[in-house]
Every structure is written in C-alpha cells, then in structure tokens.
Amino acid sequence: NKASVVANQLIPINTALTLIMMKAEVVTPMGIPAEEIPKLVGMQVNRAVPLGTTLMPDKVKNYE
C-alpha cells in the first residue's frame, strides 16, 4: 500500500505548504502520493484542510 499526503495540522485556505504541515500515511481513498511532498512545498491550498485530512489534487492550486 502506498502512502498519501495527510495534513499534520489545520492548513488555512491559501496557505503555502511546508514540510512540517504534511505527513505520509496509508489512507483510503488515496490522495496525492507521499513521494510528491517535496514538489508540494510552496504550493498553496485552495481551501482549508483540517488536521488528519488527506490532501487530494483538487485541494492544491496548480497541482498536476
């Protein structure tokens, strides 16, 4: 099972992601793969992401 990116804290809307905000966890359904964490640093979320929520591609601005 592959790990996904999960919010390590509440991430407010329009916040630029940092390493400390994210952790890798095996979750269902799968979100953004954990190996993409370095790519996500500096990207902004387009909505608030509660603690423990899986980061889905549609929650990150300009994620492809």
Rank of each mutant, 00 (worst) to 15 (best):
N1V: 15
K2E: 10
K2Y: 14
K2M: 13
A3W: 09
S4G: 02
S4E: 01
S4P: 02
S4D: 02
V5Y: 02
V6H: 02
V6G: 02
A7M: 04
A7W: 01
N8D: 07
N8T: 15
L10E: 13
L10F: 15
I11W: 02
P12F: 07
P12S: 06
I13L: 09
I13C: 15
I13H: 06
N14S: 05
N14M: 08
N14R: 01
T15R: 03
T15D: 05
T15M: 08
L17Y: 00
L17V: 01
L17A: 00
L17F: 01
L17H: 00
T18R: 09
L19F: 12
L19V: 10
L19K: 10
I20G: 13
I20E: 14
I20M: 14
I20V: 14
M21S: 07
M21I: 06
M22R: 00
K23S: 09
K23W: 08
A24H: 03
A24V: 08
A24Q: 06
A24L: 06
E25Q: 14
E25L: 13
E25W: 10
E25Y: 09
E25H: 09
V26H: 12
V26N: 10
T28K: 11
P29I: 08
P29G: 05
M30I: 12
M30C: 15
G31H: 01
G31R: 00
G31C: 04
G31A: 01
I32F: 05
I32A: 02
I32Q: 01
P33W: 08
P33S: 10
P33H: 06
A34D: 03
A34R: 00
A34S: 10
A34K: 00
E35I: 13
E35F: 12
E36Q: 11
E36G: 03
I37L: 08
I37N: 04
P38E: 10
K39T: 11
K39H: 13
K39W: 13
L40N: 03
V41M: 02
V41C: 08
V41W: 00
M43V: 05
M43R: 08
M43N: 03
M43E: 04
Q44R: 13
Q44K: 11
Q44P: 03
Q44W: 09
V45W: 00
V45E: 06
V45L: 08
N46C: 14
N46S: 12
N46A: 11
R47C: 15
R47F: 11
R47E: 15
R47L: 10
A48C: 13
V49H: 07
V49C: 09
P50E: 11
L51S: 14
L51F: 14
L51V: 12
G52H: 05
G52S: 03
T54V: 10
T54R: 00
T54F: 01
L55C: 06
L55Y: 00
M56N: 06
M56V: 06
M56W: 06
M56H: 10
P57F: 01
D58H: 11
D58M: 01
D58R: 01
D58V: 04
D58A: 07
D58Y: 12
D58L: 01
K59P: 02
K59G: 15
K59L: 15
V60T: 00
K61L: 11
K61W: 10
N62Y: 11
N62A: 08
N62C: 13
N62H: 11
N62V: 01
Y63G: 02
Y63W: 12
E64W: 12
E64M: 13
